[in-house]
């Protein structure tokens, strides 16, 4: 589904991703963990082409998205992204947030987009907030709307960059619940998170990144219980 080959990314002299190779299967849930600054966000942003890559290739369903000939906007439609700080459009209501991209990009009719939007809001448990503005929602509600907004474009892959890090502890659960549901329905997901419980329960594979490399990857149980690399052990001993 996604294939990352020899990906390198530098910001000026700072090489943030040094040589990333990664393959993600359809319906797989990959959890990315690692210390701050290890390049987790940068990896996701590269997959969504929010950052230009310095070297290497990223293939989504066989199409090289780093190839200049391919339409970036078209590529991005297939990849949904959920951000730490939600990034909802504050000047639009919840339902308008969900309808904007489908109507403008996919040229879906307003009615169809609305119906689909309402259905997605029901799914994330926020149907009654359709006409509310984002500023009136709690953090957990905002993030659920953000997930629904990404789903409205019917992406094939969903990327999550620390979706619960900006949330109050008591609302983390409701967001994770939505993500779990999504995983159960077979969505391909890449999730950067510090929620080790989620990684263990939902993840098919956990990737540990440090210093711009993938240091270790394995099934959650193996990686958490018997890490092979010293750096993984050191990191896990701090967060578990």
């Amino acid at each position: 589904m996604i294939k990352v080959e020899n990906l390198k990314k530098s910001f000026g002299d700072n090489e943030v991703l040094k040589d990333i190779n990664l393959s993600i299967e359809p319906q797989e849930v990959v959890v990315v963990i690692g210390p701050s600054g290890s390049g987790k966000s940068t990896l996701l942003r590269c997959i969504n082409l929010l950052e230009s890559i310095t070297d290497g290739h990223i293939l989504i369903e066989g199409t090289d998205i780093t190839d200049k000939k391919n339409d970036i906007n078209k590529m991005r439609q297939e990849v949904g992204m959920v951000f730490q700080h939600f990034n909802l459009f504050p000047h639009k209501t919840v339902i308008q947030n969900l309808m904007l991209a489908p109507t403008k990009v996919r040229k879906v009719s307003a009615e169809a987009a609305r119906n689909k939007g309402i259905e997605l809001l029901r799914k994330v448990g926020l149907e009654e907030k359709a006409d509310a503005y984002p500023s009136s929602l709690s953090g957990g509600q905002k993030q659920r709307v953000a997930i629904a907004r990404a789903l409205a474009m019917e992406p094939k892959i969903m990327l999550f960059d620390e979706p619960t890090s900006a949330l109050d502890p008591e609302v983390v659960g409701e967001v994770l619940e939505v993500m779990k549901q999504l995983a159960k329905e077979g969505m391909t997901m890449v999730v950067v998170t510090h929620e080790m419980g989620f990684a263990r329960e939902v993840g098919d594979r956990v990737i540990f990144m440090d210093g711009g490399y993938i240091v270790e990857e394995n099934e959650p149980k193996q990686l958490f219980e018997s890490p092979q690399q010293e750096r993984t052990k050191a990191f896990l001993s701090k967060v578990l």
Binding site: L50, R76, Q77, F83, F89, R149, A150
Partner: peptide
Amino acid sequence: RGQMEAARSLGMSNVQAMRHV
């Protein structure tokens, strides 16, 4: 900046993101 990024991540072009977001 997150507004532009959210718009682009939804597949909107630069012009669409400017205009609508």
